[in-house]
Design a protein around this nucleic acid. Structure first.
Lengths: 123, 123
DNA sequence: CTGAATCCGACTTGATACTG
DNA sequence: CAGTATCAAGTCGGATTCAG
């Protein structure tokens, strides 16, 4: 259920900067996807997110907690362990994220083609 | 079909800043919605967009043209007239925008409530 | 009417280093 | 392990002014 996250899991989504649909800030969508299969630890999330700095991950998770998208559970152990988990509200985003991904796979190539065509006009 | 746009048509959507789904940049979604019923002129678009500056509207439309979302048609008249119209690609976003809006009407209140609850903890 | 040119402040993101 | 503190850089939207 909660196997280790693949460090390359977002590499294939590279042209996401061209996608006209953005979920939250730069990282929210990926974090939601990472948490889809169950709770994850702080460092565990850093693996697939391409060397996100701890400050940014911390800030993003705090904003998501504030909006009720994730919960944070700290275990009083040594070494410390903290787990983040999607709330029902956060989980409700998964369906819409799937819809966005479906739209992307269908239409993103057209956007990239239009972009390259207009680049040729500039030259 | 293309009745004048209401200057208040986006006032009810005010808490859109809290929405975790963003379409393009700040204005792209609203422009797509404004063009849903047919072509619109430059100044016509400025009405419902709450005093968007011409520079920003121009830049947004240029980016949308570059991505193949809208077409621009200039008529050689005096005074000059320019019309923007959704392409098929741009029109394909409408379904997804509807899905985002449906999600919003269902879950955005929960986000706002969670946000207010965490504000009370800060105080 | 439909923009373009310039300047600017605010916000976002990241690099780096440090702590309980 | 799980963050925080500080600093630097880039980007975006906007105000203002001017032009075809």
């Amino acid at each position: 259920m909660t196997e280790p996250l693949d460090a390359d899991m977002f590499d294939a989504m590279c042209p996401s900067g061209a996608l006209p649909f953005q979920i939250g800030d730069k990282w929210t969508e990926m974090i939601v996807i990472c948490l889809a299969d169950g709770p994850r630890r702080f460092t565990e999330l850093r693996v697939p997110l391409g060397a996100i700095t701890p400050k940014v991950l911390s800030a993003t998770l705090r904003a998501m907690r504030r909006d009720g998208l994730v919960t944070r559970t700290a275990y009083d152990e040594n070494p410390p362990r903290v787990e983040y988990e999607l709330t029902e509200l956060g989980r409700s985003m998964l369906l819409l994220i799937d819809a966005v991904r479906a739209w992307s796979s269908q239409y993103l190539p057209a956007i990239l083609a239009a972009r390259q065509a207009s680049e040729r006009l500039d030259a």
